[in-house]
Amino acid sequence: MSQAALLDPLVPLAYRVRRTRRELPDIATLELVPVAGEVPAFLPGQFNMLYAFGIGEVAISMSGDPAQRGVFVHTVRDVGAISGAISRLGAGAIIGVRGPYGTAWPTTDAEGSDVLIIAGGLGLAPLRPAIYQVLANRARYGHVAILYGARSPSEILYRAELERWRRQLDVQLAVTVDHADASWRGDVGVVPKLIPRAGFDPTNTIALVCGPEVMMRFTATALLGAGVPAEQIHLSMERDMKCAIGLCGHCQFGPDFVCKDGPVMRYDRIAGFFAVREI
């Protein structure tokens, strides 16, 4: 957490949009640099609170390379007033930033193990920093597999990067889509279906999973079925975060607050809450 945020954690700092990239019609990636001061270090899996002035604040995961200092990278989907305003910001615009907050993907604990990275839709964005970190330290891990599911071929996020990772000889990458016409040459089906082909040692695997909650539940079930112990499955949870520092309770999930006990949470600690309504 930055010094300024420690002093007054609810006051955002001013950042400037350095560059934007339109990933998909409703998804943009923004590079943010501080108007004054330095960018604090962050861990893969953490998030920032981004403030669109006059509209509101929203939690958005880091999607950039943690080794690249001096910039925050966020990939934002237009799903409402705040995220829509942020996703339409252009270079030079000013935005408020608080963070980084939350728990991280266990990329260090996973050293020596096989790593199974499973993303669905926009869930690839919070996993991308972990992918960068694992690939930058590839020799420290066993088998590395990236499994990605998208709605359709035209809605594949970071397509150029996926193609680059696929060309890497020491990484297994598989992409599937839920729907396609006959011109699509790749797989069609849900992302858990890719798990049996991922070629990992289940007892020595750390699984990192991010996507819509239903997709993560199906995926966790498939991982358990493949023999991966629940404590080796990590999910990135999403709830309506407001304060982001464990005070307001908006993001409560069972006994935990997603903002401070998450967003990355171990499946064995949260599995019992998925089926609870109005949690």
Partner: peptide, 17 residues
């Protein structure tokens, strides 16, 4: 059947499940 149900939920759509 489970895979089809997951596809039907259209979890990656804008009003995702």
């Amino acid at each position: 059947l489970e895979e089809t149900r997951l596809q039907l939920l259209d979890v990656y759509g804008k009003h995702r499940a």
